[in-house]
Design a protein around this nucleic acid. Sequence first.
DNA 1: GCGACAG
DNA 2: ATCTTGTCGC
Length: 264
Amino acid sequence: MEKYNNNPSIAQREEWARVQSELKLKLIETDALNFTKIVNGENIVEFRGLNYIGGVDLSFIENHEEDAIATLVVLKYPSLEVIYENFSSVKLKIPYMTGFLAFREVTPLLDLLQILKQRNPDIFPQVIIVDGNGILHPRRFGFASHLGVLANVPTIGVGKNFLQIDDGENLTMAHVKKAAREKLKKGGDTYLLQGQSGMIWGAAVRSLDSTTNPIFVSIGHRISLETSIQVVLKCCRYRVPEPTRQADLRSREYIRRGQKAKIT
DNA sequence: GCGACAG
DNA sequence: ATCTTGTCGC
């Protein structure tokens, strides 16, 4: 039986950081999509040819850090109805560590994507909304970017909590929370997370009029920040965009039902 | 030693 | 991530 690694070494983290830098060479931060965006003057945006949006998530069983259910859902756009779901029970071998989330969670999601591509390619998602950041990350290569590059699919990172960026960028928790509170007055309002260097890391987005607490949107892969925000807002029936929310709800329900693992 | 910490 | 009931508001 393999041992659960509770304390990855410094050398291990450095190796992971090198892998991130290497994969980052393939990262595309502009729209490379198979659907088109039409902007009608004002703030009215239309996505032509967008039919399928993916959502992914992992849920954990009680307090077992290593036992999880990975979930992939596909939603029809623009109705946002769920037309596909699949689950996979996984034994995780790496603990959660800030900055290295992908190494813990990406493999089972790649497997689920591969299964869908083989068995039902016609509904393969044209963009995937990921529970976790894209380039809003210390090395600008978070979970959403990692998944996007490895699967070669457009991805959008959406964090429910802010991950502070240091290194003199002044994107601290206090700074961002204050700015967000001041600038996000109504649903659809956005606030660019721009560091002292001028670099843009992502955006704080107010999903709805009824939610004060923002979400944090960043480029995952093959999509611009502007388009990412527009797609996310079109998916928000609640604070969290529907693809991610459905993946989360359904994976939790799957665990509650106590079913055995199945890969349909 | 202290603060920070996606999921 | 997860443990958890009611409750306030539209």
